[in-house]
Design a protein around this nucleic acid. Sequence first.
DNA 1: GCGGAACAACATTCCCAGTAGTATGTTATT
DNA 2: AATAACATACTACTGGGAATGTTGTTCCGC
Lengths: 209, 209
Amino acid sequence: MNDLQPLPAGKVDSVQQIIDAAAQCFMAKGLEKATIDDIADVLAATKGRVYHHFRSKNAIFFAVHRLAMQYCFDAVAPIMALDIPADDKLFQMAVAHAHVMMDTLPYQRSIRLGVDIYLRGSTTEAEREVLRELIELRNDYEDLFRDVLREGQEAGTVDVPDVGLAGRAIIGALNGLVDWYRIRPGQSEADRAAIADGLARTILYGVKA
Amino acid sequence: MNDLQPLPAGKVDSVQQIIDAAAQCFMAKGLEKATIDDIADVLAATKGRVYHHFRSKNAIFFAVHRLAMQYCFDAVAPIMALDIPADDKLFQMAVAHAHVMMDTLPYQRSIRLGVDIYLRGSTTEAEREVLRELIELRNDYEDLFRDVLREGQEAGTVDVPDVGLAGRAIIGALNGLVDWYRIRPGQSEADRAAIADGLARTILYGVKA
DNA sequence: GCGGAACAACATTCCCAGTAGTATGTTATT
DNA sequence: AATAACATACTACTGGGAATGTTGTTCCGC
């Protein structure tokens, strides 16, 4: 995939490959049905390689989840720092989030609904602790949207019945991408930009004429 | 839950109980981790009862899915028949859909992301056939929203950049309920009405002041 | 600058717990 | 007596994870 790099390669790359393969498998077959062997197969390797770097299957899922959240933060956080009106900021954040959903689809798809299910299934206390962190990460991320909403509400550029509810609505509309978006061969960057822009616009301006 | 009926009971009721128990288990532990024994336990019964009425675990999931869609149609279809402006219709549909999400949470939660995953895992052709029907059902349902959107767009009461995209946004924002809504002890019917109304309002009118 | 020890990065093999599904009772109803 | 509606007991298999084997690389004293 990225074999043509100057070959810094080494250890980090191998772990990264495993995480990436896992995300693909999780997306394709679901968290449970995807086996360690499946992940190894994608890499043309065996379980040995996977278990050398990860303690358990859960640990792999956690890594996928953490990276997925990282992608989101990296895309949206810079916009938070901009000194622009809250409504404009929100628009750009929505566009950025939509792009991340499409660009890192396997990751985002893997973590949907996965957390709370894994929470109940996790045996060790250590695992539950990691899960709480991940959930908190997610909450922090979604708070970014709520914060901007509140900022706009106070400045008068945003008007919603309930900031919390509006935040949920926005996140829901954007995350829905993960459910219906499919990577098609003939799609251009412009097509994806149109999707991201159209979604953000619909959310910001509503559907009423 | 509905024990106080005139007790028509009999066979239909037993099957219904199994489906209901399955939906609860699927919500609590996920489709894979929920076992047939779990479902039987909820009913204080054994696998025998379950397998007497259902050929396989997949068949149970299909029943849950079908019923989940049925609940949606039953709530939204009547509104389609009303002779009111498209934007008002859309608002009422959104409110109704939100209520169904909360009222039948275990069902709706069970089917999220379950379909496409099961699609790849389904062995027999018969199962895949059933899945195609279910997916088509879902598309038909979502088409209801898109149809109303288009109707409003033509009538001038709705203004969106893209009808398909706006439909996805609306569905996404509403279905997001399934992810974050939790049944709390002290919640009243009014609380849920506020959620449904607030969501619909945010979607219809957007967030811009 | 070389022999080998220690280690990293895997591959192979094996075990066993858990689970879907089956086969075979058992009881009540019609 | 036939069948519906279950319960009980059993089988077969899958997949996570551990134990162990193999190979290339690094490092270190002499």
